[in-house]
Design a protein around this nucleic acid. Sequence first.
DNA 1: TACAGTGTACTATTTGTATAGTACAATAGT
DNA 2: ACTATTGTACTATACAAATAGTACACTGTA
Lengths: 125, 125
Amino acid sequence: MIDFTLDPVSGVPFYKQIIDQIRFGISRGNLKTGEQLPTVRSLAVQLQINLNTVSKAYKELEIQRVLETQQGTGTFIGAEPVRIAPEEAREKLRSICSEFLSITSCYGFTVEEIIVELKMLKGKK
Amino acid sequence: MIDFTLDPVSGVPFYKQIIDQIRFGISRGNLKTGEQLPTVRSLAVQLQINLNTVSKAYKELEIQRVLETQQGTGTFIGAEPVRIAPEEAREKLRSICSEFLSITSCYGFTVEEIIVELKMLKGKK
DNA sequence: TACAGTGTACTATTTGTATAGTACAATAGT
DNA sequence: ACTATTGTACTATACAAATAGTACACTGTA
């Protein structure tokens, strides 16, 4: 279970914020395989946004195999994480990290600061 | 001097990303008083975005007295230094790292793997 | 003066986000 | 079978962000 929250002034689209929170919730173990997510209608009411916005987030995550939806039943956390070949994964990790560092360096953050933050986010519940 | 970078998938408007990077650059001392920024045209070419988008960022910062523009000459860092509250910096770091983690977790990478990769990339340069 | 480089201003257009409303389809429980 | 609940699909609308193109104004320099 997750407490969804939206930041309307961040500039990040609502549906992307929802996507992020679900993916992050899975990675931290707050959302477990098979667990049911709020219905599109209930989450829309809770966040005071439109039904279609929630639907868009769920749909995109379903395409990415992160979620599994059953019409008439609900939306659930997918079974297995996508498997990638080790070499490809390594290259992917490198490119993502590299891009990440270039962005953080624009803000002047040091690698040490970043690592501290990452560890903190990982431990957070 | 700063290496500007845009994250097109973050959902944050380009002009806001530019504003942020300039503000943080000043706050961290990477941009000093009186220093000339890239021209609107050159930065637009560099970031592969439109001239008007860069102009919008510069204009907003000029209103905030962060930048000083002289038509026909260029755009420069204003006299009064920008001070970014520690909480804002922390929040920025947190949001960037959070988004980063949500992406990496999608590929199944652990925080430990990521940290190893970041340290390796840091040592490379 | 002439010119190159700078920022500015404006209109038009496209794209993405979000809302609103409605209708339909699949499922579970009774 | 019926009903409630779930996800899906579609059209229309509004707004912001970004692009594209063009023209203009100011500055420094040759």
